[in-house]
């Protein structure tokens, strides 16, 4: 059963477990590839995670002169192939969400690869496995659809996925709760 990474942004409690977990995934060489942001840092403590959304038409890969960013058959947009990346950093400029990181010493780009050595076998990615607040989940399309119904905001408006993103993505994002003044039922 094909599952996707699904983000329920406002659940995030800012524990940064996902950052720590990301360092531990295979091939990550102990460097995390995701982010956690304070939404309004001087006023309250709401945080939100951000990672690669695995675009269906990924700008990073389209802008790469070396064809170093491959798209896996599961739809995951992989990190740069070490032997191909020529270190031009086009991908970092192209990504609409500012996701790829660049290592100047190694002349190499690295980014979230949806923990491909896990997800290709249906094992949830590291960040989703450890998230204590159900911000990051690993769900089937049916489950995601059910979520969409459950938080039937404003006539089925799926507030953060299309058309609110820059393009169709394989990771689904949702923000069905408090920030919109809607009480959320777990």
């Amino acid at each position: 059963m094909k599952k996707r990474l699904y983000l329920e942004l406002e659940n995030c409690i800012g524990c940064r477990s996902c950052l720590a977990a990301c360092t531990q995934c295979g091939g990550h060489e102990e460097r995390n590839r995701n982010y956690v942001y304070d939404v309004n840092p001087l006023v309250n403590r709401q945080t939100m995670p951000l990672m690669c959304l695995h675009c269906v038409n990924p700008a990073c890969a389209r802008s790469c002169p070396a064809q170093a960013i491959q798209i896996h058959e599961t739809g995951a947009v992989l990190s740069a192939l070490v032997e191909k990346c020529i270190g031009c950093q086009n991908c970092t400029i192209a990504c609409p969400y500012g996701i790829p990181k660049f290592d100047t010493e190694q002349n190499l780009m690295y980014k979230c690869d949806l923990c491909i050595d896990r997800t290709k076998d249906g094992i949830p990615p590291m960040c989703a496995s450890v998230c204590p607040s159900n911000t990051l989940q690993w769900l089937t399309d049916e489950e995601i659809e059910a979520k969409q119904k459950q938080f039937n905001l404003d006539n089925g408006k799926w507030v953060t996925s299309m058309p609110y993103l820059e393009g169709e993505t394989n990771v689904k994002v949702n923000l069905p709760g408090i920030l919109q003044g809607v009480t959320k039922l777990f």
């Binding site: 942001y37 609409p96 969400y97």
Partner: peptide
Amino acid sequence: CRRKYRISRFSGFAT
């Protein structure tokens, strides 16, 4: 800034 801009698009607050 690009990442924070995305957060702002998610949250409606100009992060």
